[in-house]
Nucleic acid binder design. Structure first.
Lengths: 146, 146
DNA sequence: TGCATAATGAGAAATCTTATCAATAAGGGG
DNA sequence: CCCCTTATTGATAAGATTTCTCATTATGCA
């Protein structure tokens, strides 16, 4: 939250509105849930009825620009938004269950070495990465199930 | 192409239509380009004018089900489709340049060990994965540029 | 060849996201 | 503390991508 204020203050002509604070609040309270824009809108509406969906989209865009939020796509047609803590720069991956659809997180720096390898071999300066594993979670265990 | 026929024949009640063959043809001829549905439609229309966009979508869905095509999302709003060769099961990653937008490929089995680690630590059976690196390609070299 | 049924094309419809625009409010200067 | 500039908002229209509908066509098998 602090980060948000600071980043907003130091980033030019952006203003801290109640709407933006509320949206940030929701993101903080559901930081493990990969909410879609519409889900966020519904949750914010509980505290702040009357807020427009467009405002949610605009705020999410802004937060993404400020690098406070990561836009992810799991292939279900809608984008989802993850809060992005500064202390864990970008090592946040997803386990997507093909059976029940649940999405778990892996918070590990799995790819540090890979980033270096790729950078060297392809002359590519890696800034961030995104990694998704598809498979079957403990509950759904085997591909034949379900 | 052979794979396509076989897979189609052995997969129940699917039929091999000229439209499907044409779409597959295009995918084969542009296997490095990450085409969108509309781009594929445009290309197929050159040989087969009159083909419907819906057919392209339907065929791509089918090919995805048959595991012949991978649906990827680079965050530009539209899905893109990659042919998926059997001899390289799923080790095909992307380097996305934040400056010029170009998408390069890495064909390496970078994650074999990781898949095992993740599987063990989270009780998750990994079937596939998707990895994207964001950064700056050799031509755009530095984040400050452009 | 004939038949059952999968597949197609055209367009409507659904979904998600962005743009428009008048009205409102944030925040700095006096 | 009030004014003024200008960013922001809400409502809605517009845009874009993908899916659905349905009558028509064509595939593959007997």
């Amino acid at each position: 939250m602090q980060q948000f204020y600071e980043r907003l203050a130091t980033s030019g002509q952006h203003r801290l509105t109640p709407q933006r604070a509320d949206i940030l609040q929701v993101l903080l309270q559901h930081s493990e849930e990969h909410l879609s824009a519409e889900e966020i809108h519904a949750l914010v509406s509980e505290t702040n009825p009357g807020i427009g969906l467009a405002t949610v989209y605009r705020t999410l865009d802004l937060l993404e620009q400020l690098n406070l939020v990561l836009k992810v796509n799991f292939g279900d047609g809608k984008s989802r938004y993850d809060l992005r803590e500064d202390d864990e720069p970008h090592h946040h991956h997803h386990l997507i269950c093909l059976s029940c659809g649940r999405i778990a997180e892996v918070r590990q720096d799995l790819l540090h070495n890979l980033e270096e390898t790729v950078g060297r071999e392809h002359g590519f300066t890696v800034v961030d990465h995104r990694l998704q594993f598809f498979g079957y979670c403990a509950d759904c265990s085997s591909p034949t199930e379900n």
